[in-house]
Nucleic acid binder design. Structure first.
Length: 509
RNA sequence: GGCCCGUUGGUCAAGGGGUUAAGACGCAUCCCUUUCACGGAUGAAUCACGAGUUCGAUUCUCGUACGGGCUACCA
C-alpha cells in the first residue's frame, strides 16, 4: 500500500522565532528522503495559534531554507497543487472533520471555561497526580455534550456559546504503530487525555490539523521530533476515525538534539558561546539578537553535513558528505533512536574541512562579505582568489579569513612589538636595510627565490635565519600569524613589501 | 506523580552472543614547519548497574539507576 504511493513529505514549523538545529535537521531528513525517492518536499506553515504569531518569522524560515539549499517543492511562496500551505488560510476546512467526529461518537463538545478547567486541575490535584488531565475519569464531571442533556447542548450551540471539540479517548485500548526509527511503539489509551481538536476560536489544534492536512496533502511519510511521540496515539486514532489506517503516513520520530546539559536551547547558545539558530534572529519584543550559524561563519555545506551526521551515519567511516552524497546514502532506518549531544568543537571541524575542500570560487563571495563586514572592500578579485587559496587551510570559520588575510589588502595598524624589540639589534637593522636594497633591485619576485636570497644574505651577515624571520613576519603582517612569510611577500608585491619593512624599521629606530 | 523514549570513551559513533570493542572530534606527547595552521606518528580514555538465558554476554530477556520528552483551547 505505502510502497505504491508517491513519496511526499513535509516540514511544518510554526512561525514563532528562530529556526534551531533540530528544526533544520528535520528539514534535512525530510528533504533527503524526498529527493532520494524522487518525491516532493512540502513546507506547511502551522500558524494556528494566533497568540504566538510573530511577524517576520515566516520570511525568516524561507531565508534559512534558501541559505541551507533545502528548498521545498511546495510552500506558501513556491506554490503547489495542494494549497493553501498556511493553516490559518485553511481554517474553514477543519470544522467539518471535527463535526464528523462528534457525529460518529469519537469526539464531543466541551463548554468548560478556562476558569472551570483551572478549578478542575486544582480539585483533582493530588500527591499522586500533580497534573490532572481532562480524560475519561474526569470528563463525566465536566460541562460537555457527554454530560449535558441533548437539548441543553443544542441550546448552547445555537447561542454560539464558546466551546471546543475534544477527542473522546477510548478506555483501556492499546494503540500501536511502527515507527521507522524505533520499531513498534504502543500506548494505552486510558492514560492519554481528551485533547482539544478544535479551539474556541474555530482554529484546529495541531492534533487535528496535522492529520487533516497530511491527508489532504497526501503525505506519505511524516518525520517530526521525538517530542511528538506522546501524542502519537491521538493522531493514530484520528487517522483511524477519519481516513482509515491504510491511508496513514509512515511515522518517524527523530531523536532530540541535546545541549551541554539537556535539551538544546537558545540559552545554551548564549551560555556556551555557540549558535543554535541557522541564521541570526532578533526577538522583536526584547530586541535581543541571537547569532546564527551563517553569521558565525559557517558554510551551508558544512552546516548540512554536521547536522546529517548528528544522529545518523552510513555505517562506514565516512564523515564528510556532500548534499548529493547524502541524498544517495541517507536512510531513515539508520537514524539513531537516542538523542545526540551537539558538540560545537566538532561542528567547527566540519566547517574547517569544508573550507579546505571547497574551490576558491565556492568561497569567494562569502569571504568577500567577511572582509566587507570588517570595512575592507575588495577591488582586486585576482588577489582575493590567491589569498583565499593561500590561507583557507587555517580558517575554521569564514570569519577567520579576516584575521588570516586582511593584511594583504591593508597594512597592519598594530604591530606585536614584543615579538621583535627584545632581540632587536644593530646587526639586524643593517640586515634589513640591505634587504630593502636587494629587494628593490630584484626583478624576480617569487617566493622561492626570495627565500633563497634572504637566507644567503642571512648567512653572509652571520645571523641565523630564525632570528630574522619573525621580525620580517611582524613587518609584513603585524603579528605572529599568517601563511609562510615569503608567500606573503610574493603576493604583497615588491613595492608594498619594501614599504612595510621601511615602516617598521622606522618604528624600531 | 503518570506515560513514552533512550543509555558503547568527555562528545559523535561502528559493531550486535566468542573482536586486541572500529573511526572521528577534543585532549596530551612527538615529528614537520624557526609564526599559526595543515600533514604525519604515538598515547590516555568506553560497553550504567544487578539478575537471568547461555559453554560464553557489550550484544538477548527482565529489573534498577540515570538521562530526556510529554502531561495547555502551544506547536
Amino acid at each position: 500500500m505505502h510502497t505504491t504511493k508517491k513519496v511526499r513529505v513535509r516540514f511544518a514549523p510554526s512561525p514563532t522565532g528562530g529556526l534551531h538545529l533540530g528544526g533544520v535537521r528535520t528539514v534535512l531528513y525530510n528533504y533527503l528522503f524526498a529527493k532520494q525517492h524522487q518525491g516532493d518536499f512540502i513546507l506547511r506553515i502551522e500558524d494556528t495559534d494566533q497568540s504566538r504569531y510573530v511577524p517576520g518569522a515566516e520570511e525568516y524560515i524561507f531565508s534559512c531554507l534558501k541559505w541551507t539549499g533545502l528548498e521545498p517543492d511546495e510552500s506558501p511562496i513556491h506554490g503547489g497543487a495542494y494549497g493553501p500551505y498556511r493553516q490559518s488560510e485553511r481554517k474553514a476546512l477543519y470544522r467539518q472533520y471535527a463535526d464528523q467526529l462528534v457525529k460518529n461518537g469519537y469526539a464531543y463538545y466541551a463548554f468548560d471555561s478556562p476558569g472551570e478547567l483551572e478549578k478542575m486541575r486544582e480539585d483533582f490535584k493530588t500527591e499522586q497526580n500533580p497534573a490532572p488531565q481532562y480524560d475519561h475519569t474526569v470528563r463525566s464531571q465536566m460541562r460537555n455534550s457527554l454530560t449535558l442533556a441533548e437539548s441543553e447542548v443544542k441550546k448552547l450551540l445555537d447561542e454560539n456559546t464558546r466551546h471546543v471539540i475534544r477527542i473522546k479517548m477510548p478506555e483501556n485500548e492499546t494503540v500501536s504503530f511502527t515507527d521507522m526509527i524505533r520499531g513498534e511503539v504502543s500506548f494505552n489509551t486510558s492514560v492519554v487525555d481528551d485533547k482539544v481538536l478544535l479551539k474556541a476560536d474555530g482554529m484546529p489544534t495541531y492534533h487535528l490539523a496535522v492529520v487533516v492536512d497530511d491527508h489532504l496533502m497526501e503525505i506519505s511519510h511524516a518525520f517530526r521530533g521525538e517530542e511528538w511521540l506522546p501524542s502519537a496515539p491521538v493522531h493514530i486514532l484520528l487517522w483511524k476515525y477519519l481516513f482509515g489506517l491504510d491511508a496513514m503516513p509512515q511515522w518517524a520520530h527523530l531523536p532530540l538534539i541535546l545541549g551541554p546539559n539537556g535539551k538544546l536551547s537558545k540559552r545554551d547558545g548564549a551560555k556556551y558561546g555557540f549558535p543554535v539558530f541557522a541564521m541570526s534572529w532578533t526577538d522583536a519584543k526584547t530586541n535581543e539578537l541571537t547569532e546564527g550559524f551563517k553569521e558565525k561563519g559557517f558554510l551551508p555545506e558544512a552546516f548540512i553535513n554536521l547536522l546529517a551526521v548528528l544522529g545518523w551515519n552510513d555505517g562506514t567511516e565516512q564523515e564528510i558528505f556532500s548534499k548529493a552524497e547524502l541524498i544517495e546514502k541517507f536512510s531513515i532506518e539508520r537514524v539513531h533512536s537516542g538523542g545526540a549531544r551537539f558538540d560545537y568543537e566538532k561542528a567547527k571541524w566540519f566547517n574547517h574541512e569544508w573550507i579546505k575542500r571547497l574551490e576558491v570560487a565556492g568561497l569567494r563571495e562569502q569571504v568577500k562579505q567577511v572582509f566587507s563586514d570588517k570595512g575592507i572592500h575588495i577591488t582586486d578579485e585576482q588577489l582575493l582568489d590567491k589569498v583565499i587559496a593561500l590561507v583557507k587551510e587555517r580558517c575554521h570559520l569564514l570569519t577567520d579569513f579576516a584575521q588570516q588575510g586582511a593584511f594583504f589588502f591593508k597594512a597592519p595598524e598594530q604591530y606585536d612589538m614584543n615579538a621583535v624589540k627584545p632581540k632587536w639589534n644593530e646587526a639586524k637593522q643593517v640586515f634589513f636595510a640591505e634587504l630593502i636594497r636587494n629587494f628593490e633591485l630584484s626583478n624576480n619576485w617569487i617566493a622561492h627565490d626570495l627565500e633563497t636570497g634572504f637566507k644567503e644574505m642571512a648567512a653572509a651577515h652571520r645571523i641565523k635565519p630564525g632570528e630574522l624571520l619573525l621580525p620580517f613576519r611582524i613587518m609584513l603582517v603585524g603579528g605572529k600569524f599568517g601563511p609562510h612569510v615569503f608567500d606573503i611577500a610574493e603576493l604583497l608585491g615588491k613595492e608594498e613589501t619594501v614599504a612595510r619593512i621601511k615602516h617598521l624599521l622606522a618604528l624600531l629606530q
